[in-house]
Each structure stands twice: as structure tokens, then as C-alpha cells.
Design a protein around this nucleic acid. Structure first.
Length: 928
RNA sequence: GCCCGGGUGGCGGAAUUGGUAGACGCGCUGGAUUCAAAAUCCAGUUCUGGCAACAGAGUGCGGGUUCGAUUCCCGCCCCGGGUACCA
């Protein structure tokens, strides 16, 4: 029998399904291991060969871990809510649920063909009411909790209410929108509405007026990570700033824990770095600046309080509440004009026009708390309202933005830091601000002559002592806006009564998404849910019209897989305590700031309220690289229907045109298929080289418009799933981006056939021998076991495939068909190519599945060598090799090397200066 | 601008702790087999020179450390990704 992958793969995929081979349950007799893939959004285009890369890697790892005796949880599901299905519904009227269902069916078909070891009984879909019940439930818990900064965890809002009743805000330190101060009496005197509004300032899921990224084309609000360069990530539509009442999650409360939690995670340094930057912790000071002619003092945030003697002006954000208070009558007209102008500038303009300096003087002055100087207060849009206090002290000598502003408006610049090894210079001669990270203080009163580090310390002490400020930590991380004015998402289990938002009772969950006729916003501008009939409670109170964003459903799915059918909780205590957390998470780097921040936040919250036992969801994370497309081109001679082959094109004036890579093999064009591809090319003529049309190529993104999309189904039809799996791994390091080039696939397919042939004679009959293996054969086997296992553990699957090839090549040339060797080879290959191994396992006479076997044990004793072939170098350059016993002394090795006939030529009449011998490594003879 | 990756044959890539640069595969060249082709098998394949033996050069560029550098250090160039008036 030949290697008939089509029959073999079909047969075993059916077998696995019928026998529930991949079903797992809590089993306390075995250690657990949890391997998770980032679940896909089921798009209409189906999977291309880039998508399964990470799934194949995680599948190999899961199968390996299973063979090492672990109880492996390896589930898959769908991130099923999302914009494309809704956009499609708007265009065609087809319900997004139907589109989604169809796309999921197609995904499942494609995934099944690749032979994954998923436990499909655990599948989750974010759009399934049984699933989103727990998304809504978590939201309600966040609504009912606040963050206590002292205990550093989420606590019940009822406890906060109790504290308010007892002593007002006097004894609380809670994460909040704005710092409020009231007494118990004042609290009790508040109306129900006032109390509700006050509590919103503390709830972890809260309603607030916020500046949002409003996308008019999509008719919805977007999160910061859904906007890039002022355009929506999905669709590329313009996004503008707008103030709207929105649900938000107080992610900022967890900023410190999200930051410090990174330390214990096995994530790549670059990914941790991205998260650190996104959280953006900066330590500095809040300082009070008194204002000339005002009672109140203004608070600013600075990370460099030590440079305060260099402050020559202050700047407010245009949105700052101080603008109105500080604008003098003489300046009012000019300030109003500037504010109006700034409001008109969209985020996009501000970004594309960063270099432009603009601003206006308020007419007011502040007093420098250290020097007592009067300094003018300006307004400029380079100061952001949302960061710090929306007001800064400007140190033009040492900050490039302040410098540009000072130059533009002719404000004074005073140097206060002299960089190490430099002299103070006249700022008038400068082209830019001077770096102040290290150096010596000047022009700075009591700080003079101190170095920067000491000056920072001394300033901190000084401002604390004089009570003109306090040490303060700031984070860039913003609260997550959680409302979307869309249909295809989770409804909020919230209703409104007298303008107050009330949570629905938990036993009313899931609050199911209602049917609507059209998927557009209403004529009044309400979200699509405004069209739903009876979208109100039994008592008749209206229910929230927004739905939740994409990241809602993906924030706790790793927990739900542990216990996907549980109707009494997100996850049972038993299941959670057994599976704990994800041991290995594989997915794309594009989720670095979105999903991976939100799900960590969500998980920490559930941990705080004792729902789960782990503070972090994903222990180890590997980012698979992107698979790029490899496009092919033909070269049309301008103004003709003639196409010239790659290497002849220089003689003509040509236009390169993308051609479908599926009609090109090894860069040779199938000219007949090309003629039939498009009526335009029906009468195409070709100028060939060596009788062939050679195409040009380039590495580009894999996309329809480049005609370079390769479908896994086509590859599987031609070569089989085992070949696809091996080839995806063979392509290069898992974490690197690399182009897909089908050209190389023959190599791994050939390898599988050669592997098959080890078990079969030249007539295709199964034939293995029970003879004792030789030392050489055992050496090949154990070399492979060691290399393969080492490489799996460091996720170096490309070199693993090489190791298999080497072993099979060696066994083939030894004509080895011994069961003792082949059986173990088969077991180490099984995680990579499960179908062929399952078939051969059966042919060897086994009745159980190869999946259930234990991994072969590596034995050092088979690799022990008695001699080593030393490379002999002269001045570091390898010249010849010398086989010597391993137990030979250094002195004897040196003698052997120097007296070797080949050595004379390299020594010549020069003298030997030194001989370096590293046992089992190298001999280097230094001559000169 | 800043922060991460990365740069090795015609191509994808390997070299795990400073120790034989180019494993493995593709492609290409030659040969065997075949009526022929496909498939398969064998040999060769970094570049330059040479029939060859062999010699020289060589891991983005320039320097350095070392007996020895793809690997470590300094300075640059290029490519990919992230991020940005974050005080």
C-alpha cells in the first residue's frame, strides 16, 4: 500500500471523533496542562494558510504534553460578535446570526481537516446566550463593586455606601473619576438620583460623560486600541472626538497591578514592553502653584520637579476648567477664538500637524512656589486634558515641546541643568532643548551644584516639607469605554428609571438580544436596539440601547472553557481549582494592548471577588509571526497584449501585473490557465525563455487583492494535512514573520513518504522486523528523541522537522525496518503528523490510539562516543580534521595535531606561539 | 523622535554557553532509471580564481576585545513592528 494520505486522514479523523479521543475531564490523578489558542473571529473569507500556524504549534505542544502524562485541556471556540457580520447585515438584510453561523460552519470544516486535538464538547461562542450570560453577569459584578486603593482590590459597593453613611468620604481611598469630598450628613441628605450619580464615580463599571472616539461612518464609539492614526482600525473610517454618556470600565484602577503582574509572566520582553508603555507609569510630583490675584491654587503634574527654577511659563490644555477662571477680560476674545479653533481640529489633524506651534496667553500669572517669580499662564493644545491635571509647568530649556513654544512666542528660556562634561551656554544660541537626564544643577537656588539624581530627591523632600505638593504616580492607561452603538453584541442588563441606571436581577440573565427589522440606527439617532419592540422591563422601564464591545466576550473565555456548560456560574470552583490558568497561550501580537490588557483586568477583578483562584489568566504566552503572501507577477509589454518572461523583460517597456499564485508553480506560469483566468487575457501572447514563462515575485501581505491567498483546503487536497502541519512548522521560527511559499512543500511531503517507506517494502507491503537494533540505529533514534524534545520545549518546531528528516534519511540509508526503532520514531513524530502515525501504529498491530501512548524516553547511553573528530584550526581558521580518542590527554592531542602531516604546511617556518585545546570542541594552533 | 525585533547562499532558514559558518528543505546542474514524461534514486551546489588538488574572500557597514566573533563591546546604515505633543 502506498502512502495514501487522503484515505488515512479521513479514516482517522472519523475515528477520533467517534471515539471522543480528545475529550478531557477533570482528573485529579494527573497533572493538568492548559493550552489555549486565541479564538478566531469567523470571517466570511474562511481560513488562509496563515491562520492555522499558531493552532498547529499549540496542537503539537498539546499532543506532546499529553504523551508526557499530562491531562491537557485544549479547547477552541469563536469570537462571534463583531462588526463585519453587522455591516453585511446592513448591506444585505441577512441577520448577523445567520452569517455568523455559516462562517462558523465553514471554519469548523476547515479546522477539522487539519487534524487538531480540540475537545469540541467545550466549544464556546461569544454570541450564544448561555455564554454571554456570564459576560453580562461579570458586568453586573463590576457595577456592584468599587476599587479600594488601600486594600488594592475590588470590594462591594455596599461597603462603600456603609462608609459614606458612617463618615462620608473622610476615611475612603477609592479609585474614582473625580475626587469628591462630603460628610456623612451631606451624603444622607442627597436625593436618590444624587446618590446614584455619586456612586457612579466609584463603580468599576460606570456611566459617565466621556470624550469618546466617535466614528460617524460606523455610527459607533471605538476604544483607543480600535483607532489608529485617527481612522478606525476596521474599515479605515475617520474618527472624531465627541462627548457622550457611555458605560466604561475602571481599568485604570488596576494600572499598578497590571504593571507589576507582568514580572511573573513568561511573555516575550517585547510584548511586556508594549504593555508597560501602554500602562505608561510615571513617577513625579503634583505641585501647587499660587495664582496672582486668585485665592485658589492650581495643581500641576511634573516628573521633573527638580527643574522648577527653569520654569518660565505655564500651559493649560484648551479643555482645562482653569481656562475660564484665568482668562482676563482683555484676552477673552482671543482665548475664545483659540479654543474654538482647537476644538475644530480633529485628532487626526493634530496628529498629522504635530510640528505646528499654537497657543494663546490667558492674561493671568502664577507664582513659582520655589523662586517666587511671576510667570505667565498660556493655553495650548500640546497639553492634553486627560493626562495629569491638564496643566503643566513649562521648562523650555529642557523640554523640546516647551522649547518650541517658548521660541515661537518669544518667552524666556533659562538653563538649569548642565550635562555632565559640558559648560553652561546661552539658550539664545540653542537649536533645541538640552537633555537633562544627567548633569549638574545651576540657576536653581538651594539645588545648585547638586547632580540631577540628588536634586530630584531633595526637591521631593522640600515640597513635602513645605506642603506645596506631593509625590504622585501617574498612569497613561485610560478607562475602557464599554458602550457600542451597535446591534451585534451583548446587551447591557441595565434599565433606567427616573434617569437612574439600575442593574437587572441576576436571575433574569441572560438578557437576550432582541430581534429587529433593520440593523441601522433609528431616525432619532438611537442605536439599532432602539428599533426593538418591547425593549423594556416587565414594569415598563426602558433597557439600555447600547451593546458591549468586542473585547467583552473574549475577556473571560479562557475560564469558561474550564466548565463550558455550567449554568450556575462562570466556572465551578472544582473546575477552576483544577485547571487554574492557561499554561500556554498562543496568538497574534496584534492583541498586545487590547485583549491582553482587558482580559488581565477582567481576570484580576474576578480574582478579587473570589470567583477564581488565579490573579493572572495567561502564564506563558507565545506570539506566532504573521505569514505573509508571496505574490507573482507577469510583465505586460505596454500597449499590447504580450507578456514577457521575467529575465527578458529588460528589453521591453513593461507593466508588472499580479497573477493568481495558484496558477503558478515554481514561478513558472501555467499560460493556459492564465488565458482562461480573465477574458482580457484570452488572446494573450507570451515571450518565453527556455520554453517557459517565468514570473517575478514579491513578499506582500496575504490578501485577495494581491491574488496571493493560499487556502489550506487546497494544500490538504494535494498533499494532506500532515504535510501541511509539518510544512507550516518547517517554514521558519514560530515567532518570526515569514512568507508562505508553496514551492518548498514537496520536501516535507517527500519526507513523510520516506518515513512511510521505512515500514513498507518496495512492493508497498507492510514489512517490519523484530530484529535487535544495532548501536548505530539506536544512536540515530536517541539523537532524534533528544533533539526533538529539546526543540519542542523551546518552541523551535522548524528545527524539529529538520531533525526528523535527518533521522529518516539516516535510517533509510541503513535500510532499517526494525520495529524497536520505528515504533519510537513514530511516537515522537505523532504530535506533528498524527494521521500517518496513527495509521502506522495500527499497522504495527496496536489496537489503541497513538495519542494515548507515553513519550519515548531518551537514553544518554546510546549516544556515548569514544572519539571525536577535532577541527584543527591555525590562527582560528579551520584547516583539517583529526579523529582522536576522547580520553586522550591534552599533551598528546597537541602532539598529534602538530605532528600531523597536514600541519607542516600551515606551520611552515613560523613558530608555534600557543596551542588551545578545548576537549570535544576544537584545537587551535597559533603560529606567527 | 522614542521603544522593541531583525539583517547569514538564488530562496526559506540552521549554528542552544565565544569554538568546524551555511544543518535541513526548495531551486538549480549533472547522472541512473524510462520508448518518453512524471515519480524515484545518486552526485554536486556560498562567492572568486583553477581542469583539479587547492588558494583567497565571506554572516548589513566601519572599528574594537579575544588564540578564536554570526555570537560580546562601540559607532553607523537598512528593513519590519509598536508608540507618540504623556510633561
Amino acid at each position: 500500500m502506498d502512502y495514501n494520505f487522503r484515505d488515512i486522514e479521513k479514516k482517522w479523523q472519523e475515528y477520533w471523533q467517534e471515539n471522543n479521543t480528545y475529550k478531557v475531564d477533570v482528573d485529579s490523578s494527573k497533572p493538568k496542562y492548559y493550552v489555549l489558542d486565541m479564538f478566531p473571529y469567523p470571517s466570511g473569507a474562511g481560513l488562509h494558510v496563515g491562520h492555522p500556524l499558531g493552532y498547529i504549534a499549540s496542537d503539537i505542544y498539546s499532543r506532546y504534553k499529553r504523551m508526557k502524562g499530562f491531562n491537557v485541556l485544549h479547547p477552541m471556540g469563536y469570537d462571534a460578535y463583531g462588526l463585519p457580520a453587522e455591516q453585511y447585515a446592513i448591506q444585505t438584510g441577512q441577520h448577523p446570526a445567520i452569517t455568523t453561523e455559516n462562517n462558523i460552519a465553514r471554519y469548523r470544516q476547515q479546522l477539522d481537516k487539519i487534524g487538531f486535538s480540540y475537545d469540541w464538547d467545550r466549544e464556546v461562542r461569544t454570541c450564544d446566550p448561555e455564554y454571554y450570560k456570564w459576560t453580562q453577569w461579570a458586568f453586573l459584578q463590576m457595577f456592584k463593586h468599587y476599587y479600594n486603593n488601600i486594600t488594592q482590590k475590588a470590594e462591594s459597593i455596599n461597603e462603600l455606601i456603609a462608609l459614606f453613611n458612617e463618615s462620608g468620604t473622610a476615611n475612603i481611598t477609592a479609585a474614582c473619576g473625580e475626587e469628591l469630598t462630603f460628610t456623612a450628613e451631606e451624603w444622607k441628605a442627597m436625593s436618590e438620583k444624587e446618590q446614584a450619580d455619586t456612586l457612579m464615580n466609584y463603580r468599576l463599571a460606570f456611566l459617565a460623560d466621556t470624550m469618546v472616539n466617535w466614528c460617524p461612518a460606523l455610527g459607533t464609539v471605538l476604544a483607543n486600541d480600535e483607532v489608529k492614526d485617527g481612522l478606525s482600525v476596521r474599515g479605515g473610517h475617520p474618527v472624531e472626538q465627541k462627548k457622550m454618556q457611555q458605560w466604561s470600565l475602571r481599568v485604570s484602577a488596576y494600572a499598578e497591578r497590571l504593571l507589576s503582574g507582568l514580572d511573573n509572566l513568561e511573555w516575550s520582553d517585547s510584548l511586556k514592553e508594549v504593555q508597560k508603555n501602554w500602562i505608561g507609569k510615571s513617577e513625579g510630583a503634583e505641585m501647587l502653584f499660587h495664582l496672582k490675584g486668585h485665592e485658589e491654587a492650581m495643581t500641576i503634574f511634573t516628573t521633573r520637579a527638580d527643574t522648577i527654577f527653569g520654569v518660565t511659563f505655564m500651559v493649560l490644555a484648551p479643555e482645562s476648567e482653569w481656562v475660564e477662571k484665568l482668562t482676563t477680560p482683555e484676552q477673552k476674545e482671543a482665548v475664545d477664538a483659540y479654543i474654538a479653533e482647537a476644538a475644530k481640529r480633529t485628532e487626526r489633524e493634530r496628529m498629522t500637524d504635530v510640528k505646528r506651534v499654537s497657543g494663546i496667553f490667558t492674561g493671568s500669572y502664577a507664582i513659582n512656589p520655589l523662586s517666587g517669580e511671576e510667570i505667565p499662564i498660556w493655553i495650548s493644545d500640546y497639553v492634553l486634558a486627560g493626562y495629569g491635571t491638564g496643566a503643566i509647568m513649562a521648562v523650555p530649556a529642557h523640554d523640546s515641546r516647551d522649547f518650541a513654544f517658548a521660541r515661537h512666542f518669544d518667552l524666556p528660556i533659562r538653563q538649569v541643568v548642565v550635562p555632565t562634561g559640558a559648560e553652561a551656554t546661552d539658550p539664545a544660541t540653542w537649536e533645541d532643548s538640552i537633555d537633562s537626564k544627567e548633569g549638574i544643577m545651576i540657576n536653581s537656588g538651594f539645588l545648585n551644584d547638586l547632580n540631577v539624581v540628588d536634586a530630584i530627591q531633595k526637591t521631593k523632600e522640600y515640597i513635602a516639607e513645605k506642603e506645596i505638593g506631593q509625590v504622585k504616580v501617574n498612569y497613561r492607561l485610560r478607562d475602557a469605554i464599554f458602550s457600542r452603538q451597535r446591534y451585534w453584541g451583548e446587551p447591557f442588563p441595565v434599565y433606567f428609571k427616573d434617569g437612574i441606571a439600575y442593574p437587572m436581577s441576576e436571575d433574569q440573565l441572560p438578557l437576550e438580544l432582541p430581534e429587529i427589522e433593520k440593523f441601522l440606527p433609528t431616525e432619532d439617532g438611537d442605536p439599532p436596539l432602539g428599533r426593538a419592540q418591547n425593549w423594556k422591563t416587565e414594569e415598563g422601564y426602558p433597557i439600555e440601547l447600547s451593546t458591549m464591545p468586542g473585547f467583552a466576550g473574549s475577556s473571560a473565555y479562557s475560564l469558561r472553557y474550564m466548565d463550558p456548560k455550567n449554568n450556575n456560574g462562570l466556572v465551578s470552583k472544582e473546575a477552576n481549582e483544577y485547571w487554574q490558568d492557561v499554561d500556554l497561550y498562543i496568538g497574534g501580537i496584534e492583541h498586545a494592548t487590547g485583549h491582553l490588557i482587558y482580559s488581565r483586568f477582567w481576570n484580576k477583578f474576578l480574582f478579587d471577588i473570589n470567583e477564581i483562584c488565579k490573579d493572572e489568566p495567561f502564564k506563558k504566552l507565545v506570539n506566532q509571526g504573521m505569514i505573509q503572501g508571496r505574490s507573482n507577477f507577469v510583465y505586460r509589454v505596454k500597449g499590447t497584449n504580450k507578456f514577457v518572461s521575467l529575465n527578458l523583460r529588460k528589453e521591453y517597456d513593461t507593466t508588472p501585473i499580479h497573477v493568481d499564485v495558484n496558477m503558478v508553480q515554481n514561478d513558472v506560469l501555467d499560460t493556459e490557465r492564465f488565458r482562461n483566468w480573465n477574458p482580457e487575457y484570452k488572446d494573450a501572447e507570451f515571450i518565453l525563455e527556455d520554453g517557459k514563462y517565468i514570473c517575478g515575485w514579491a513578499v506582500e501581505k496575504m490578501s485577495k487583492s494581491m491574488f496571493n491567498v493560499v487556502n489550506p483546503d487546497d494544500i490538504i487536497d494535494t498533499y494532506g494535512a500532515d504535510t501541511l502541519r509539518l510544512y507550516e512548522m518547517f517554514l521558519g521560527p514560530l515567532e518570526a514573520s515569514k512568507p508562505w511559499d508553496t514551492n518548498g512543500i514537496d520536501g516535507v511531503h517527500k519526507f513523510l513518504r520516506r518515513f512511510w517507506n521505512l515500514f513498507h517494502n518496495s512492493n508497498g507491503e507492510f514489512q517490519v522486523s523484530d530484529a535487535e537494533p544495532t548501536a548505530e540505529e539506536l544512536k540515530v533514534l536517541h539523537k532524534a528523541i533528544k533533539k526533538v524534545e529539546d526543540d519542542i520545549l523551546r518552541f523551535s518546531f522548524n528545527t524539529t522537522v529538520s531533525a526528523f528528516m535527518i533521522a529518516v534519511n539516516e535510517l533509510t540509508s541503513m535500510k532499517c525496518n526494525k520495529k524497536a526503532i520505528l515504533e519510537e520514531m513514530l511516537l515522537i513524530l505523532a504530535p506533528f503528523a498524527p494521521h500517518i502515525c496513527e495509521e502506522l501504529w495500527k499497522q504495527l498491530g496496536n489496537t489503541d490510539s497513538v495519542v494515548a501512548q507515553l513519550y519515548p524516553k531518551f537514553e544518554e547511553k546510546f549516544l556515548v562516543e569514544s572519539s571525536f573528530e577535532y577541527p584543527v584550526s591555525f590562527n582560528g581558521k579551520m584547516r583539517f580534521k583529526l579523529n582522536l580518542p576522547l580520553d586522550m590527554s591534552k599533551e598528546d592531542i597537541e602532539k598529534e595535531a602538530i605532528n600531523h602531516p597536514n600541519a607542516a604546511k600551515w606551520i611552515g617556518d613560523k613558530s608555534i606561539r600557543k596551542v588551545i585545546i578545548v576537549p570535544k570542541k576544537i584545537i587551535n594552533i597559533v603560529v606567527g
